[in-house]
Design a protein around this nucleic acid. Structure first.
Lengths: 336, 336
DNA sequence: TTGTATGCGTTATCAT
DNA sequence: ATGATAACGCATACAA
């Protein structure tokens, strides 16, 4: 391992001062350096294999030009496209994006943010967590601005970008109703959460507009059956066994579709013939279910780009702790 | 935004020199500082909200204590658990792990590595790319050691950690044969690649051991049907329509299972009754197919941990450009 | 247009 | 056990 090539080396080789070299190598052509020398110096730097020291630069400028995004690593999938778009957006701003999965062992989102004291970063984007005080405090302790994505708390305490879940629920339901389906089930998880309430609210909204009454018995809260046979939703199995008829189903999120489709098939119902099914999230594998899943697609690209732009803004001037809402769209496939 | 708290501030407050403060705040108790002052200084630092400057530290020590992992962002899914285990392993070594998705626009793996000149990092782990000369050169230009994961080239030019695909293919096939299945199809993608050859070789190995002849007509190379109805594999549809009987199927990787299962169902075949199906990768959603997919699980945890350990080693002493192989396991579910 | 000199905050070396 | 100080490599204010 030879010593690293520094500005000094380049300057000596070029027979000019380090300042000139620094200016010549600046990203955007510096006004105080002749194109000729700029060109000459850049060539020499290249020949010598010069690479700027990020540490030295950051020490001098006080910024790393990097953002960190905290992702929930126990929930695979949905956040990937957000990270992707954030990465691209960051790049366009000349920033790098560092991705940090939250480990159970790492004390959740707040713990992961605290660990960022050892990561060179200028700002934090938190994906998919309700931004509690703890998150806010952890970031404040590091003097890092935070932006939250997909936090569905009623009153955000941070600048927040999120999707209109109520509109999404409504959209899914309207799609089902518009096909003449009348007896719709809502198949949700057992957990509670604002986004759940919002999607159900959308479900109700659509019924109201259509003048159809919601049968509360069809609003199901199901236990995860993912690890034990027969991998169906027993709540749904029982409902169907009781002879309750449904002709449409809105799954709280795509992952509910696997067990739900199995329950339907087990009950001898076809999709979409007997029952039309709509999911939520448009995860990559939604096209792999049988039949391919019609679903609500979150505007992942917007989410990522917006979050990055807010995070960069927040570095210089405070950004209001208010919610920016983006709207989902319907992705039609074969299940409804 | 007030000025940041530095060692100087702490030292003045404590009435000691900066060196003492630096020693007192070192991660592992420094031998040259009394426990009393150590304790006192740490408290003061805490009170003042002192955070070390990573830039200054890195400038001084010459290392960031961070590794970068390059992941193929166009292939969702399989690498997630590897990143997770790598993250944990890195943490145990006192390192941070930075995750970098490769963008199409970013010039592939090599391009993404080059972009790391703007990322504070001490080493690179490349996931899921055949480590070409380009990758090697890109890393060399940055003077960063590289470790490759899941590169299936015959002769690795980098330290490489990979899974025994031949053993995996054999394992999947033996599982099918052991159930008395005799007419097995191999359902693969149209692409070529060493890992494909290896899995097929394992498929053949198992047949050889069982004294069963492979019917080459049953080795299918199918076009992706993921974006167009009817979302089945037409190659498989045709085979079945021709009246060819199969009773078992090995999918080259889990994602092939969606269309394959649809093809089977469309042909009126049940799974696993008529046809037993085994996948490869054990992706998260493998449990969502109907029936839940029996599959070959790659030892993701080992892959990540091993890669990190090699990358850290490579920082100090050269690590041989040889392949370390780990073995997959069978994950039994309902499809076979 | 270019060169010189300073300081960013830390750790390590050398005194004491 | 502690303190003073040099050096890491860069960007910039200021001088030329």
């Amino acid at each position: 391992m030879t010593r690293r090539v520094t500005l000094m080396d380049v300057s000596k080789q070029a027979g000019v001062g380090v300042a000139t070299v620094s200016r010549a190598l600046a990203a955007e052509p510096h006004r105080d350096v002749s194109p000729a020398t700029r060109e000459r110096i850049r060539r020499i730097a290249d020949d010598l294999g010069y690479r700027p020291s990020l540490a030295a630069r950051a020490l001098r400028t006080g910024e790393y030009r990097a953002l960190s995004v905290i992702v929930p690593d126990f929930e695979w999938g949905w956040w990937e496209p957000v990270v992707r778009s954030a990465y691209n957006a960051a790049e366009e701003h000349g920033y790098h994006l560092l991705v940090h999965p939250v480990g159970e062992r790492r004390g959740g989102a707040a713990g992961t943010i605290s660990a960022l004291s050892n990561v060179p970063t200028d700002g934090v984007i938190v994906l998919g967590f309700s931004a509690s005080r703890e998150v806010q405090n952890a970031a404040a302790a590091l003097r890092l601005p935070v932006v939250s994505v997909d936090d569905t708390e009623a009153n955000p305490i941070l600048p927040t970008v999120s999707v209109d879940n109520r509109a999404g629920g409504r959209m899914a339901t309207e799609h089902l109703l518009s096909q003449g389906r009348q007896r719709l089930a809502y198949v949700g998880n057992t957990w509670a959460g604002n986004f759940v309430d919002q999607r159900i609210q959308g479900f109700r909204d659509a019924h109201d507009s259509a003048g159809i009454e919601v049968n509360d018995r069809l609003i199901l809260r199901c236990e995860n059956p993912w690890d034990d046979p027969p991998f169906t939703f027993k709540e749904l199995d029982e409902l169907l066994a009781d002879g309750v008829r449904i002709d449409g189903m809105f799954c709280e999120y795509d992952r509910m579709a696997g067990p739900a489709l199995r329950s339907l098939r087990r009950a001898g119902l076809t999709v979409p013939g007997d029952v039309a099914v709509v999911g939520y999230d448009d995860e990559e594998w939604a096209k792999l279910t049988d039949p391919p899943l019609t679903t609500i697609r979150q505007p992942y690209e917007e989410l990522g780009a917006l979050a990055v732009s807010l995070a960069i803004q927040a570095q210089t001037r405070p950004v209001a702790a208010e919610r920016r809402t983006v709207v989902p769209t319907l992705r039609k496939r074969q299940s409804a």
